[in-house]
Design a protein around this nucleic acid. Structure first.
Length: 108
DNA sequence: TGTGTGACGGGCG
DNA sequence: TCGCCCGCCACAC
């Protein structure tokens, strides 16, 4: 069928994340493959950081921690971008993550 | 072809 | 309560 890499699917979903919102690796993994390991999503996002147009900063772990901040040029860049979009970040963690959480399966 | 890796998640002590 | 361990599957070498 499609030779689309798993990465492409993840990136496509990441691009659909609305501004001012965030989602978790597990949510994307579940939306794509159901029981797929969240690690695959994380790895795909790691590759996404090298791509352009991929809001990787809107993707965090299940507790809303900016685990990807270390992959950015500066550990504060990711937090700054989120705050600029209206997301409150405290100590590399999104405040009221449940409120900002965007579920691809629910919205799509 | 096989082994190792990896921006996670959940469970157990 | 906090911290450590195991499992997961796709991609690169």
């Amino acid at each position: 069928m499609e030779k689309t890499s798993f990465f492409q699917d993840v990136w496509d979903v990441a691009r659909l994340i609305p501004k001012g919102r965030a989602t978790s690796y597990g949510a994307i993994a579940r939306y794509l493959g159901g029981k797929m390991s969240a690690r695959m999503v994380g790895w795909a996002m790691a590759a996404a950081s090298t791509q352009k147009g991929i809001p990787a900063w809107r993707v965090v772990n299940s507790v809303g921690v900016l685990t990807a901040s270390a992959r950015f040029e500066t550990p504060t860049k990711m937090q700054e971008l989120l705050e600029k979009e209206g997301v409150v970040v405290k100590d590399n963690k999104i405040v009221d993550f449940k409120e900002k959480f965007w579920d691809p399966g629910a919205e799509l």
